[in-house]
Protein backbone atom coordinates (compact mmCIF):
# COMPACT_ATOMS: atom_id res chain seq x y z
CA UNK A 1 0.00 0.00 0.00
CA UNK A 2 1.22 3.43 -0.98
CA UNK A 3 1.09 6.28 1.48
CA UNK A 4 -1.77 8.30 0.03
CA UNK A 5 -2.08 10.77 2.88
CA UNK A 6 -2.60 14.42 2.03
CA UNK A 7 -2.96 17.39 4.36
CA UNK A 8 -5.60 20.07 4.18
CA UNK A 9 -4.28 22.43 6.83
CA UNK A 10 -4.45 20.48 10.11
CA UNK A 11 -6.75 17.83 8.69
CA UNK A 12 -4.98 14.74 7.43
CA UNK A 13 -6.85 12.71 4.84
CA UNK A 14 -5.85 9.06 4.50
CA UNK A 15 -6.22 9.47 0.75
CA UNK A 16 -7.28 12.30 -1.55
CA UNK A 17 -10.66 10.77 -2.50
CA UNK A 18 -13.63 12.57 -0.94
CA UNK A 19 -17.28 12.55 -1.91
CA UNK A 20 -19.08 15.75 -2.85
CA UNK A 21 -21.84 17.43 -0.89
CA UNK A 22 -25.38 16.62 -1.98
CA UNK A 23 -24.34 13.48 -3.82
CA UNK A 24 -23.55 11.27 -0.84
CA UNK A 25 -26.53 11.83 1.45
CA UNK A 26 -25.32 11.98 5.03
CA UNK A 27 -23.06 8.93 4.51
CA UNK A 28 -24.89 5.80 5.76
CA UNK A 29 -26.91 5.54 2.52
CA UNK A 30 -23.72 4.17 0.91
CA UNK A 31 -22.86 1.55 3.48
CA UNK A 32 -24.17 -1.37 1.41
CA UNK A 33 -21.92 -0.39 -1.48
CA UNK A 34 -18.58 0.64 -0.03
CA UNK A 35 -16.47 0.85 3.11
CA UNK A 36 -16.57 4.49 4.13
CA UNK A 37 -13.37 3.95 6.11
CA UNK A 38 -11.54 3.48 2.80
CA UNK A 39 -12.30 7.05 1.72
CA UNK A 40 -10.29 10.14 2.53
CA UNK A 41 -13.52 11.63 3.80
CA UNK A 42 -17.02 12.64 2.81
CA UNK A 43 -18.93 15.90 2.61
CA UNK A 44 -22.45 15.93 3.99
CA UNK A 45 -25.48 17.38 2.28
CA UNK A 46 -25.49 21.17 2.76
CA UNK A 47 -26.78 22.04 6.25
CA UNK A 48 -28.64 25.23 7.14
CA UNK A 49 -29.57 26.60 10.58
CA UNK A 50 -33.21 25.63 10.19
CA UNK A 51 -34.59 22.66 8.20
CA UNK A 52 -35.46 23.44 4.57
CA UNK A 53 -37.95 21.65 2.35
CA UNK A 54 -36.19 22.32 -0.95
CA UNK A 55 -37.82 23.13 -4.27
CA UNK A 56 -41.21 21.86 -5.47
CA UNK A 57 -41.76 20.16 -8.83
CA UNK A 58 -39.31 18.18 -10.91
CA UNK A 59 -35.84 18.37 -9.37
CA UNK A 60 -33.65 16.38 -11.75
CA UNK A 61 -33.19 16.33 -15.53
CA UNK A 62 -30.70 14.20 -17.31
CA UNK A 63 -28.57 16.02 -19.91
CA UNK A 64 -25.81 14.93 -22.29
CA UNK A 65 -23.24 13.20 -20.04
CA UNK A 66 -24.61 14.94 -17.01
CA UNK A 67 -27.60 16.21 -15.15
CA UNK A 68 -29.30 19.35 -13.91
CA UNK A 69 -30.56 19.49 -10.35
CA UNK A 70 -32.69 21.99 -8.50
CA UNK A 71 -33.02 20.21 -5.18
CA UNK A 72 -32.98 23.62 -3.51
CA UNK A 73 -30.71 22.62 -0.63
CA UNK A 74 -33.30 20.50 1.16
CA UNK A 75 -31.87 19.40 4.51
CA UNK A 76 -32.77 18.45 8.05
CA UNK A 77 -31.38 21.63 9.68
CA UNK A 78 -28.45 22.01 12.07
CA UNK A 79 -30.20 20.82 15.22
CA UNK A 80 -31.38 17.49 13.81
CA UNK A 81 -28.06 17.08 12.03
CA UNK A 82 -26.02 17.53 15.21
CA UNK A 83 -28.35 15.66 17.57
CA UNK A 84 -29.49 12.79 15.35
CA UNK A 85 -27.27 12.43 12.29
CA UNK A 86 -23.83 13.05 13.78
CA UNK A 87 -24.14 10.24 16.36
CA UNK A 88 -24.90 7.84 13.49
CA UNK A 89 -21.83 8.78 11.46
CA UNK A 90 -19.33 9.68 14.20
CA UNK A 91 -17.82 6.18 14.27
CA UNK A 92 -16.51 6.25 10.70
CA UNK A 93 -12.74 6.27 10.57
CA UNK A 94 -12.61 8.95 7.91
CA UNK A 95 -12.84 12.71 7.71
CA UNK A 96 -16.31 14.20 8.13
CA UNK A 97 -16.63 17.46 6.26
CA UNK A 98 -19.83 19.34 6.94
CA UNK A 99 -21.06 21.44 4.05
CA UNK A 100 -23.09 24.44 5.26
CA UNK A 101 -24.82 27.50 3.93
CA UNK A 102 -26.95 30.43 5.03
CA UNK A 103 -28.67 33.50 3.67
CA UNK A 104 -26.92 36.16 5.72
CA UNK A 105 -23.49 36.73 7.18
CA UNK A 106 -25.00 36.53 10.67
CA UNK A 107 -26.46 33.11 10.00
CA UNK A 108 -23.26 31.83 8.37
CA UNK A 109 -21.38 32.85 11.52
CA UNK A 110 -23.99 31.42 13.89
CA UNK A 111 -24.08 28.13 12.03
CA UNK A 112 -20.30 27.81 11.82
CA UNK A 113 -20.09 28.43 15.56
CA UNK A 114 -22.72 25.78 16.36
CA UNK A 115 -21.07 23.20 14.09
CA UNK A 116 -17.65 23.95 15.54
CA UNK A 117 -18.79 22.80 18.98
CA UNK A 118 -19.00 19.22 17.72
CA UNK A 119 -15.58 17.65 18.28
CA UNK A 120 -16.06 14.88 15.69
CA UNK A 121 -16.46 17.20 12.71
CA UNK A 122 -13.11 17.47 10.94
CA UNK A 123 -13.76 20.33 8.58
CA UNK A 124 -16.39 22.81 7.48
CA UNK A 125 -17.09 23.46 3.82
CA UNK A 126 -18.79 26.78 3.28
CA UNK A 127 -21.10 26.67 0.28
CA UNK A 128 -21.23 30.08 -1.37
CA UNK A 129 -22.21 28.81 -4.69
CA UNK A 130 -25.40 26.82 -4.90
CA UNK A 131 -27.27 28.40 -7.77
CA UNK A 132 -30.64 27.05 -6.70
CA UNK A 133 -31.68 29.41 -4.00
CA UNK A 134 -32.92 32.81 -5.01
CA UNK A 135 -31.82 34.78 -1.98
CA UNK A 136 -28.30 34.96 -0.56
CA UNK A 137 -26.24 31.97 -1.69
CA UNK A 138 -25.40 32.90 -5.24
CA UNK A 139 -24.81 36.56 -4.45
CA UNK A 140 -22.14 35.66 -1.87
CA UNK A 141 -20.37 33.47 -4.38
CA UNK A 142 -19.84 36.09 -7.07
CA UNK A 143 -18.52 39.05 -5.07
CA UNK A 144 -14.86 38.80 -3.95
CA UNK A 145 -15.26 41.55 -1.31
CA UNK A 146 -18.21 39.75 0.26
CA UNK A 147 -16.37 36.44 0.16
CA UNK A 148 -13.38 37.89 1.95
CA UNK A 149 -15.39 39.54 4.73
CA UNK A 150 -17.67 36.54 5.15
CA UNK A 151 -14.73 34.14 5.30
CA UNK A 152 -13.02 36.38 7.84
CA UNK A 153 -16.17 36.52 9.97
CA UNK A 154 -16.56 32.74 9.94
CA UNK A 155 -12.83 32.29 10.54
CA UNK A 156 -13.18 34.16 13.83
CA UNK A 157 -15.65 31.64 15.25
CA UNK A 158 -14.14 28.35 14.09
CA UNK A 159 -10.86 26.56 14.70
CA UNK A 160 -11.92 23.77 12.34
CA UNK A 161 -10.35 23.37 8.94
CA UNK A 162 -12.33 25.86 6.87
CA UNK A 163 -12.90 25.11 3.20
CA UNK A 164 -14.61 27.68 1.01
CA UNK A 165 -16.50 26.11 -1.88
CA UNK A 166 -16.43 28.26 -4.97
CA UNK A 167 -19.00 28.82 -7.66
CA UNK A 168 -17.95 28.49 -11.30
CA UNK A 169 -20.60 31.01 -12.27
CA UNK A 170 -18.17 33.92 -12.20
CA UNK A 171 -15.98 35.67 -14.77
CA UNK A 172 -12.66 34.89 -13.04
CA UNK A 173 -12.53 32.19 -10.40
CA UNK A 174 -9.03 33.14 -9.29
CA UNK A 175 -10.45 36.40 -7.88
CA UNK A 176 -12.96 34.63 -5.68
CA UNK A 177 -10.37 32.02 -4.69
CA UNK A 178 -7.90 34.74 -3.65
CA UNK A 179 -10.64 36.48 -1.69
CA UNK A 180 -11.32 33.30 0.28
CA UNK A 181 -7.60 32.92 0.95
CA UNK A 182 -7.33 36.53 2.09
CA UNK A 183 -10.28 35.98 4.43
CA UNK A 184 -8.45 33.15 6.14
CA UNK A 185 -9.76 30.00 4.45
CA UNK A 186 -7.63 26.88 4.92
CA UNK A 187 -8.57 25.57 1.48
CA UNK A 188 -10.89 26.17 -1.44
CA UNK A 189 -12.97 23.52 -3.17
CA UNK A 190 -14.32 23.82 -6.71
CA UNK A 191 -16.34 23.61 -8.78
CA UNK A 192 -19.92 23.71 -7.70
CA UNK A 193 -22.53 23.27 -10.42
CA UNK A 194 -22.88 25.49 -13.49
CA UNK A 195 -26.26 27.17 -13.87
CA UNK A 196 -28.30 25.73 -16.72
CA UNK A 197 -31.81 24.93 -17.80
CA UNK A 198 -33.83 22.56 -19.96
CA UNK A 199 -37.19 22.94 -21.67
CA UNK A 200 -39.82 20.46 -22.71
CA UNK A 201 -40.33 21.52 -26.31
CA UNK A 202 -43.63 19.66 -26.54
CA UNK A 203 -45.32 21.55 -23.71
CA UNK A 204 -43.00 24.57 -24.05
CA UNK A 205 -42.41 24.66 -20.34
CA UNK A 206 -39.27 24.52 -18.26
CA UNK A 207 -38.69 20.97 -17.05
CA UNK A 208 -37.39 21.87 -13.59
CA UNK A 209 -39.90 23.19 -11.09
CA UNK A 210 -37.36 25.90 -10.30
CA UNK A 211 -36.80 26.64 -14.05
CA UNK A 212 -32.99 26.66 -13.63
CA UNK A 213 -30.70 24.15 -11.98
CA UNK A 214 -27.08 23.19 -11.48
CA UNK A 215 -25.26 21.21 -14.16
CA UNK A 216 -22.96 18.42 -12.98
CA UNK A 217 -21.41 15.23 -14.28
CA UNK A 218 -18.78 14.37 -16.92
CA UNK A 219 -20.08 17.17 -19.17
CA UNK A 220 -18.55 19.82 -16.89
CA UNK A 221 -15.16 18.21 -16.38
CA UNK A 222 -13.11 20.25 -18.88
CA UNK A 223 -14.41 23.50 -17.39
CA UNK A 224 -13.75 22.25 -13.85
CA UNK A 225 -10.26 21.04 -14.72
CA UNK A 226 -9.34 24.40 -16.24
CA UNK A 227 -10.65 26.29 -13.19
CA UNK A 228 -8.85 24.01 -10.72
CA UNK A 229 -5.60 24.43 -12.65
CA UNK A 230 -5.92 28.24 -12.68
CA UNK A 231 -6.85 28.35 -9.02
CA UNK A 232 -4.02 26.08 -7.93
CA UNK A 233 -1.61 28.53 -9.53
CA UNK A 234 -3.33 31.57 -8.01
CA UNK A 235 -3.47 30.59 -4.32
CA UNK A 236 -1.09 29.05 -1.77
CA UNK A 237 -3.74 27.16 0.19
CA UNK A 238 -4.75 23.65 -0.92
CA UNK A 239 -7.28 23.29 -3.72
CA UNK A 240 -9.85 20.50 -3.67
CA UNK A 241 -10.98 19.72 -7.20
CA UNK A 242 -14.23 18.33 -8.48
CA UNK A 243 -16.58 18.38 -11.44
CA UNK A 244 -17.44 15.38 -13.53
CA UNK A 245 -15.11 12.85 -11.96
CA UNK A 246 -16.18 9.37 -13.07
CA UNK A 247 -12.97 7.40 -13.66
CA UNK A 248 -9.47 7.00 -12.24
CA UNK A 249 -8.25 8.99 -15.24
CA UNK A 250 -10.38 11.93 -14.12
CA UNK A 251 -8.96 11.73 -10.59
CA UNK A 252 -5.40 11.74 -11.96
CA UNK A 253 -6.13 14.72 -14.20
CA UNK A 254 -7.33 16.87 -11.29
CA UNK A 255 -4.36 15.92 -9.11
CA UNK A 256 -1.93 16.53 -11.98
CA UNK A 257 -3.18 20.09 -12.49
CA UNK A 258 -2.67 20.80 -8.82
CA UNK A 259 -5.62 19.61 -6.74
CA UNK A 260 -4.54 18.31 -3.31
CA UNK A 261 -7.68 16.21 -3.04
CA UNK A 262 -10.75 15.54 -5.18
CA UNK A 263 -14.45 15.05 -4.62
CA UNK A 264 -16.59 12.55 -6.47
CA UNK A 265 -20.11 13.86 -7.08
CA UNK A 266 -22.84 12.77 -9.46
CA UNK A 267 -20.92 9.60 -10.36
CA UNK A 268 -22.02 8.25 -6.95
CA UNK A 269 -25.53 8.04 -8.41
CA UNK A 270 -24.43 5.74 -11.20
CA UNK A 271 -22.14 3.50 -9.15
CA UNK A 272 -22.59 3.98 -5.40
CA UNK A 273 -19.34 2.12 -4.76
CA UNK A 274 -17.21 4.25 -7.09
CA UNK A 275 -15.41 6.35 -4.47
CA UNK A 276 -13.75 3.30 -2.94
CA UNK A 277 -12.92 1.90 -6.38
CA UNK A 278 -11.18 5.18 -7.24
CA UNK A 279 -9.19 5.23 -3.98
CA UNK A 280 -7.99 1.68 -4.65
CA UNK A 281 -7.23 2.52 -8.27
CA UNK A 282 -5.12 5.50 -7.24
CA UNK A 283 -3.21 3.29 -4.80
CA UNK A 284 -2.45 0.77 -7.56
CA UNK A 285 -1.50 3.45 -10.07
CA UNK A 286 1.09 5.01 -7.78
CA UNK A 287 2.41 1.65 -6.59
CA UNK A 288 2.95 0.47 -10.15
CA UNK A 289 4.78 3.64 -11.07
CA UNK A 290 6.60 3.83 -7.75
CA UNK A 291 5.52 7.43 -7.54
CA UNK A 292 4.45 9.32 -4.40
CA UNK A 293 1.21 11.24 -4.12
CA UNK A 294 3.20 14.46 -3.70
CA UNK A 295 5.06 13.78 -6.94
CA UNK A 296 1.78 13.34 -8.73
CA UNK A 297 0.05 16.45 -7.38
CA UNK A 298 0.79 19.48 -9.54
CA UNK A 299 2.97 17.53 -11.95
CA UNK A 300 1.51 19.09 -15.08
CA UNK A 301 4.17 20.34 -17.49
CA UNK A 302 3.65 23.87 -18.74
Amino acid sequence: MTDLRVHISKTTLKNPILTASGTFGYGPEFEPYLDLNKLGGFCTKGISLEPRPGNPGIRIVETASGMLNSIGLENCGSRVFLDETMPKIAHYDTAIIVNFYAYSEDDFVKLAAVLSENPRIDALEMNLSCPNVKQGGSAFGADPKLIESLTAAVRKVTAKTLIVKLSPNVADITLTARAAEAGGADAVSLINTLVGTAVDRRTRRFILGNKVGGLSGPAIKPVALRMVWQTAKAVKIPVIGMGGIATLGDVLDFLIVGARAVQVGSANFVDPGIAQTLAEGLDRYLAERQETIDQLIGSVQE
Binding site: T23, G25, E29, R59, I60, N69, N268
Partner: peptide
Amino acid sequence: GCGIGACLGC
Protein backbone atom coordinates in the same frame (compact mmCIF):
# COMPACT_ATOMS: atom_id res chain seq x y z
CA GLY B 1 -31.11 10.31 -9.62
CA CYS B 2 -29.74 7.68 -7.29
CA GLY B 3 -32.56 5.44 -6.01
CA ILE B 4 -30.86 5.16 -2.61
CA GLY B 5 -31.89 8.33 -0.79
CA ALA B 6 -28.74 10.29 -1.52
CA CYS B 7 -29.71 12.97 -4.05
CA LEU B 8 -33.16 14.02 -2.81
CA GLY B 9 -34.21 14.26 -6.45
CA CYS B 10 -37.23 11.99 -6.24
